[in-house]
């Protein structure tokens, strides 16, 4: 089965951890993840500038490793990311901001990518939200 996974909550939220466990189970079960999509506060997962105390789990890094290891299509909503200070080189230059903080595991793109993933997948599974 083909899954699209959308995440709305920040890396420290329990739903982020649940989403990662779910995504791991999808692949372990022989299914496919057509795309991961970050929206709202979940765009913080794509920040390469998060620093956690050494004895705490770095959820954003775990996601980045999972994406790289499995060569997943992982997209961040560009509007939600800009609003929350997650910029790539191009956007930092365009908006004259000093820092680029986007992890290379993720790609900045638009909401159309969420709709496309929804059309390609058999199931859309969302984590987080109010």
């Amino acid at each position: 089965m083909k899954f699209a996974i959308a995440l709305f909550s920040p890396p420290h939220a329990p739903s982020s951890r649940r989403a990662l466990r779910f995504a791991e189970a999808v692949l372990a079960g022989g299914h496919e993840i057509v795309r991961l999509f970050l929206y709202q506060d979940a765009v913080q997962h794509a920040s390469a500038a998060l620093v956690l105390p050494q004895d705490e789990t770095d959820g954003a890094r775990q996601w980045q490793t999972f994406i790289s290891d499995n060569q997943l299509d992982a997209v961040v909503c560009i509007a939600a990311a800009l609003r929350r200070g997650v910029l790539n080189d191009e956007e930092a230059a365009r908006h004259d901001k000093p820092a680029t903080v986007q992890s290379r595991a993720w790609t900045l793109s638009g909401l159309g990518q969420l709709h496309e993933a929804n059309q390609l997948a058999d199931r859309l599974i969302c984590f987080g939200g109010p």
């Binding site: 929206y39 709202q40 509007a79 939600a80 609003r83 638009g110 909401l111 159309g112 969420l114 709709h115 059309q119 109010p130």
Partner: peptide
């Protein structure tokens, strides 16, 4: 917060694709 606008943006984006 931005939640209402962000939900609406999903709808408007999908509408633009005629979904």
């Amino acid at each position: 917060g931005p939640g209402a606008r962000e939900a609406l943006d999903i709808a408007l984006a999908g509408g633009a694709f005629d979904l």
